[in-house]
């Protein structure tokens, strides 16, 4: 039923359900907030995670909102526990998006982390300060074109030993 309701309410939405308990929705980037609030009103009020995938060949970043209902009894007519993967793609160069904190306060640290690791700017986020990292990186480290091995050789390999006897 959820499938039909989504199809009638929203235009350009693609729905796939190939694996068990897993509903994949794709939508253009301006539709996410309305779909999120629609699902929240339906009872899918538990935001598990916001993830990001770097599709470097398509020059796009994909934001993935994963949510489900806390209890399936909360959703009328629900027969199985459903995990909803809501996906949208944004441009890879200078990526910007809007925050979803107003709908889901749990989104705050996830958006902060995506900002740090992928360089996505979430407009309206109260604090996009560094969360996990200590150094500044030219390319955000979770992007596919950031080569960790090369970085390690450049940065840590160039630190000299302190004492003479360690050199041999």
């Amino acid at each position: 039923m959820l499938k039909q309701e989504l199809e009638t309410t929203f235009d350009n939405i693609t729905i796939r359900m190939e694996k068990k308990n897993q509903l994949e929705l794709s939508i253009t980037k301006d539709g996410i907030m309305s779909v999120l609030s629609f699902l929240k009103n339906k009872g899918y009020d538990h935001l598990h995670v916001i993830s990001c995938v770097d599709w470097i060949d398509d020059k796009q970043l994909e934001l993935v909102y994963i949510l489900s209902a806390y209890m399936k009894q909360d959703v009328p007519g629900e027969t199985e526990q459903l995990n909803i993967l809501l996906k949208t793609r944004i441009g890879r160069d200078d990526p910007k998006y809007i925050t979803s904190i107003a709908l889901f306060p749990a989104a705050e640290p996830y958006e902060r982390e995506i900002h740090e690791m992928f360089g996505v700017d979430f407009l309206g986020h109260p604090r996009l300060t560094p969360l996990l990292l200590e150094r500044d990186y030219d390319i955000p480290p979770f992007r596919k074109d950031f080569d960790t091995k090369q970085y390690v050789d450049d940065v840590f390999g160039s630190v000299p030993s302190v004492e003479g006897e360690d050199k041999n």
Partner: peptide, 13 residues
């Protein structure tokens, strides 16, 4: 947080 960050998700790739 961040004192124990090792970038697992990157290393796994």
């Amino acid at each position: 947080p961040g004192y124990l960050h090792r970038g697992f998700e990157k290393l796994m790739e």
